[in-house]
Write a protein that binds this DNA or RNA. Structure first.
Lengths: 320, 320
DNA sequence: CCAGGGGCTTAAGGAAAACTGATGCTGGAC
DNA sequence: GTCCAGCATCAGTTTTCCTTAAGCCCCTGG
């Protein structure tokens, strides 16, 4: 009979490609992984791994078994979740991935949850949105909070449950004392093009979703920045705007939370969506449901500032 | 993580109802089963078993987990079969259930198969048709050869693969020297009714499929036996017919194989179907496929005598 | 050409898990 | 009241699993 633990090991190995990496990720020695995979091959009765002294790689049979393993493990996870749902206890370990920009907002609420349920252990990492979906599917995280800057509705990731948490306006972030911030009305295409020609354009590095969305908007209005600075981290960009280094497209909540920055709504409107991803198999797990609930609460408590769209806020209104 | 072995134990326990019986069937001590179930409860985080000192019974959660276990184990079995199919080796243990009447015909062929493949171990038991389906579903057998006496097509058993092996005529078995055996033409309703009134009616005990089918036929022609003897085993019935103890409805092959017995076709025709049952999840297992193939061959090599429908065979023709 | 290192396996020993047999408990049957 | 079936628990042994250590292979860099 095939063993679930070994199938899990096979899956990780299939994803990572080397025994050493698998061992690291699962917290075992490479020797243990090697032995377990060898045992699995004996159980399966067929070679699963091509063993060149250099690198171990999956055979066709191994690849197929890894796919079967996904189904088997999913069925087992469903059963386990159902049992946990019946028990109703919020306990165990929940691994969460969060985009860096939201981690500070979430951390205290998750800490509170953990304090309420001593049996619960929440492990949160910061990961970018692009890698998070695969990581959840791969069971490396139970829950991922990501953002989606695309205009259209977020695509349902194959095999993942998508929970919409909130939708945030993207604003043009300007220094508060900047003359453009004084003008009334939203930032039209012409105004954005003009701004880009006179100001340093601050944006995230290539590969970030916010960068792609910003580039797309600039291309749409036929604007190309004369000077462009790249920085990682939306909060850092907001800080740079405040110091007068330039202007940037930022989520309203972030622009607004930074003293010295004024966010001006765009026309046409631009938004990002904050999503949570879970595996459908863990839906019923009360621990994960509790985490998701807390995250939803945490994000909606910021709702008042998030969808901020006043053209000229009073300077102190962010604190309200 | 839930353990497959423990889930299997849970399933067996769910089917059998007592820890002792489960232990017997799986070849462990009751203590081991008790401990494994306790461990499973710890893993599941919820009570699965109601423990009265008297008898252990499943809780609702236990029942549900047992159902999930069926799915998980089926997925695992599918994967295992696929691996075995890839390996292509005919090996391992295959458990077969067979109705008693066919066991002699099958045994030598299965023995030959086993001789050809020393790694293969075939374990065959004799079981009635009614219990076999459940036993296959329950993974107590991998393959079951059963007969179906109902007039209509055999119903697809939920979750089982049905393989039609052959269809046999049912004949009225008479002593060869009996005056009725001399008459030409099939046994019509009137003739059957008359026969039943003058002869001792030999049939299987209540509960057997052949008994139900025979009773149904008698009811259809409005006949009720004046004297009825019940014996288990179709071959025994044939032998009794030969000794002049009475008449019986028997498969043509069995009636025909018994010296001193003449089988006369019925009108309307009456038939039984020989079927094999497997789990769909083990379809691709070459060992099981090989067994099924051998069984099919074994039964079709008797085909010439099976569908025997001559009204008055020459006495020696059965030996040809 | 040889040293170094990454990746994997094998061997040996110790830790953890699992099974057995014995013992004790409970509640119904005789 | 005694017996018995069924189950849990405990102690001890066997099996499984993991780690450390050593070795092999092949590539790379000096």
């Amino acid at each position: 009979m095939l063993d679930l633990r070994r199938l899990e090991i096979l899956r990780r190995f299939a994803a990572l490609g080397t025994i050493t990496a698998t061992a690291d990720e699962l917290g075992y020695s490479p020797s243990a992984i090697s032995q377990q995979l060898a045992t699995l091959e004996r159980e399966a009765g067929i070679a699963l791994i091509e063993r060149t002294a250099q690198r171990a790689s999956l055979t066709d049979a191994g690849r197929e078994l890894a796919e079967h393993a996904a189904h088997i493990l999913a069925a087992a996870e469903t059963a386990h979740s159902r049992m946990r749902a019946r028990a109703g206890t919020i306990s165990g370990r929940v691994t969460i991935s969060c985009i860096p920009a939201l981690a500070p907002a979430l951390a205290p609420h998750l800490a509170t949850l953990q304090r309420l349920h001593p049996e619960l252990s929440v492990v949160a990492h910061e990961t970018g949105s692009t890698a998070a979906a695969a990581a959840v599917l791969d069971r490396r995280y139970d829950l991922a909070v990501i953002d989606d800057w695309s205009e259209h509705r977020p695509v349902e990731d194959a095999g993942l449950s998508v929970h919409r948490l909130r939708r945030e306006d993207i604003v043009l972030a300007l220094p508060t004392d900047h003359p453009l911030a004084e003008q009334s009305g939203p930032v039209t295409a012409a105004r954005l093009r003009e701004t880009v020609h006179h100001q340093t354009w601050l944006c995230a590095p290539v590969g970030q979703l916010s960068r792609a969305a910003g580039d797309q908007r600039l291309a749409a209005v036929n604007a190309s920045p004369v000077r462009r600075w790249e920085f990682a981290g939306l909060h850092v960009l907001a800080l740079l705007v405040a110091t007068g280094a330039g202007v940037a497209l930022l989520p309203a909540g972030i622009a607004h939370g930074q003293a010295g920055v004024t966010g001006v709504r765009l026309a046409p409107r631009m938004q990002r969506t904050i999503l949570a991803l879970t595996r459908p198999t863990t839906h019923e797990d009360p621990a994960i449901a509790a985490c998701l609930h807390v995250i939803r609460e945490a994000l909606s408590s910021q709702q008042s500032t998030a969808n901020y769209s006043a053209v000229k806020p009073a300077p102190g209104s962010a604190a309200s």
